[in-house]
Design a protein around this nucleic acid. Structure first.
Lengths: 165, 165
DNA sequence: CTATGGCTTTGAGCGCGCGCGAACGCAAAC
DNA sequence: GTTTGCGTTCGCGCGCGCTCAAAGCCATAG
């Protein structure tokens, strides 16, 4: 896939700056169109990561994967769903450590649901802050592009005489 | 500063999700309220990075810093402005390598302005894509929070029976 | 029926980007 | 005097994943 991975599909679905509807989100998580038992190469392609990374995640305890009679990994729907979640969290900046903790909570049963929810809420806030940071950086970059004379200073009128940058 | 660094001030200025006006951007780049010659600790505090990192940037050739008679670094307005720019770019994901290249272009004179502009345009696109990615991850996270039963699946109605995650 | 290529497996080790820590000296300030 | 802050250098560390090596199984091609 790689040129048609989940994120690329998702971005195409959303467009460059369209609003996000629940319907769109539902489609983002809809995996009905992928084959049920998948090989490592297929999953890697779907998630746009390498087979190596998938094995790395498995060794890290993030997911258990069955094997066929040749010892090759066989990813069932649950594993794929979990990996979609994991890669989404990774892509949005959640560190491996936290993912390991989250999965350990999952494995610990329903009692840990509140803590999982806390983790998601906190991660949501982190993403939000990151988006705001990037939005500011974007604005600053666009400002610099618009007023470009090479200076870092704020005064467009003085750009010609400002120290070069 | 650290609890009142540039980004924190900027975020406070903008609010949690307000629109960005040119006026706000201008204020973001307005350094009139900082003392003119600064010590490494003051600059570090302003930029919310460590003195170590500032020395690292200097060794990397990103900025030249004068010294006082004791050999201590003295950051003038130009150095501070450049560092504000550099840290902003770093924070938005531009790698050191690219910053070094950019600075080398600056040092090479006006002929390199078009290439610098290209770099900024490209970086702008990268930031935009990153924001869109994060927006999607945010939406997915919020969707998961809203429908939370612990499953990664898309079907909220089946959450109770879905495999736990 | 080989064989040639292409996928998989494991394990250990490497690499990158980015900066931090530790150790040590010197000048100033309390 | 001793605490503070800055200087330099060397090396380390972290997060994350890739590379490399050695080997096994499958399919298609001669």
């Amino acid at each position: 896939m790689a040129t048609d991975d989940l994120m690329t599909r998702a971005l195409a679905l959303v467009g460059d700056d369209g609003p996000l509807s629940v319907e769109v989100i539902r489609r983002l998580t809809d995996l009905a169109d992928v084959p049920e038992p998948m090989t490592i190469a297929e999953v890697a392609d779907l998630l746009d990561i390498t087979p190596h990374t998938l094995r790395y995640y498995e060794r890290a305890g993030l997911v258990e994967v069955a094997r066929d009679r040749y010892g090759h990994r066989v990813y069932d729907a649950e594993a794929v769903r979990r990996l979609v979640f994991l890669t989404r969290m990774r892509l949005s900046g959640m560190p491996m450590r936290d993912l390991q903790h989250y999965i350990s909570l999952v494995d610990a049963g329903q009692d840990t649901v509140p803590e999982r929810l806390d983790m998601l809420l906190e991660h949501r806030d982190i993403i939000r802050r990151r988006i705001r940071e990037l939005t500011l950086s974007l604005a600053a970059t666009e400002y610099k592009i618009a007023t470009y004379g090479g200076s870092t200073g704020p005064d467009a009128a003085a750009l010609d005489t400002a120290t070069e940058l």
